[in-house]
Computed example of a mutant assay.
Amino acid sequence: MNPNLRVLIVDDEPLARRGLELRLARHADVTIVGQAGNGHEAFLAIARVRPDLLFLDVQMPEVDGFALLRALPAEQLPMTVFVTAYDQYALDAFAASAIDYLLKPVDDARLDQALARAREALASRAAGQHRDRLLGLLAQVSGRPGLSLVDALSGDVAAPCDKLAFRDGDRTVRLDPADVRWIDAAGDYLCIHATTETLVLRATMREMEQRLDPRRFVRIHRSTIVNRDCVRELRSHVNGEYFVTLQTGQTLKLSRSYKDKAALLH
């Protein structure tokens, strides 16, 4: 028996969303858990309903599809089918990183194929592999390909209060540590969620932790580091876990293994 696919549709065109909704209704194992008309709505919906599969319009005003994905915590990245009007060159990259892609107007046969791939990935527990490939794509479209941390980071390790430096081709991008809200990891990639952008690079949490001032940045999970100055609320949960709510409204989990760090966030 196929597992049920919980789907979120994200497109700024109401008719496009409705068209996908009608086509997906042909599949008894698909449940549409929500729809969003822009990146901000989608960000909130993904955190709320945690879909298995995202049908994502790449070209949306203000917050496009890639910006949305970069803003998500890595553990929330769902399997993604891009819905796009991009040319064949871009589609090759999408196909290598996402579950599938669909060209507008959406063809029923191609939609069926995309769903079949998603079902197979969910049944074989391969969704995490797709997430790692998706993070690799985000690193490329950010203009920051997957570098090792040794190559990607520069600056004085002995001076953690200095600006964080990231090498971007021939230039160096510097971030004020105060602008870094939280960092999360998936596989060999890190997502650095800053005030104005989210950077994706190839690195490990251990390497990044060595770069950060422990007086400001607190490891709250094996895959999450948070800027304590950005924490608005700490709320206890079951089994010694906590929910950490940031000033932006984003909620992160402080795991039981790091419960001793809760005192640092008060």
Rank of each mutant, 00 (worst) to 15 (best):
E209M: 08
L102E: 09
A109M: 10
L246T: 01
Q35P: 00
L254I: 04
S223N: 12
N38D: 15
R174D: 05
L69N: 03
V157C: 03
G34T: 07
F243Q: 11
R26Q: 11
V33I: 14
D162G: 03
L164C: 01
V244G: 07
D108K: 06
L53N: 01
V63L: 14
H27C: 10
D176N: 15
M60F: 11
V33S: 07
D12L: 04
P73D: 05
A74Q: 00
T251N: 04
E75S: 12
R18L: 15
A36G: 03
A118L: 02
K261G: 05
R232G: 08
S148D: 14
L135H: 11
F243S: 13
V238I: 13
V81T: 11
A93R: 14
F82Q: 02
P61I: 08
D184S: 04
A45N: 09
R167W: 04
A121F: 02
G34F: 09
H27W: 14
L20N: 01
M205Q: 08
N38C: 13
V58D: 08
V200P: 00
L115E: 01
P51Y: 02
A95Q: 12
R215I: 04
L15M: 14
F243N: 10
P78M: 01
F66D: 00
L20C: 01
R110W: 07
R119C: 08
V180H: 03
S255H: 12
E197Y: 07
T245N: 07
S97K: 10
E241C: 13
D162P: 02
G146N: 04
L111C: 05
P160C: 08
L153V: 11
L102H: 08
T84Y: 09
L264H: 07
D162F: 06
L138W: 05
R206V: 14
L135C: 15
T251P: 05
A203N: 08
V141H: 06
L212M: 13
V180A: 06
L164F: 05
G240K: 05
R48Q: 14
D87L: 03
V150K: 14
L264Y: 02
L164D: 00
R119G: 02
E197W: 08
D151L: 10
P105Q: 06
L115D: 00
D229Y: 12
L147F: 06
S97D: 12
P51N: 04
P3R: 11
L53V: 03
L77I: 13
S257H: 12
T198S: 15
R211Y: 06
A126V: 01
R17I: 12
L254G: 10
A95W: 07
R235T: 15
N38L: 05
L164E: 01
K261M: 14
S97T: 06
A263V: 11
L153W: 10
R119F: 01
E120Q: 13
L264C: 06
I99G: 05
G19M: 03
A152F: 04
P51R: 00
V141N: 01
R219C: 09
C191H: 15
A95G: 05
H130D: 02
R117V: 00
K163E: 15
D92L: 12
D108V: 06
L77H: 07
V180D: 04
V238W: 13
I183S: 05
N239C: 08
A159K: 14
R174T: 15
L234P: 07
D162E: 15
T84E: 08
F43Q: 07
C161N: 11
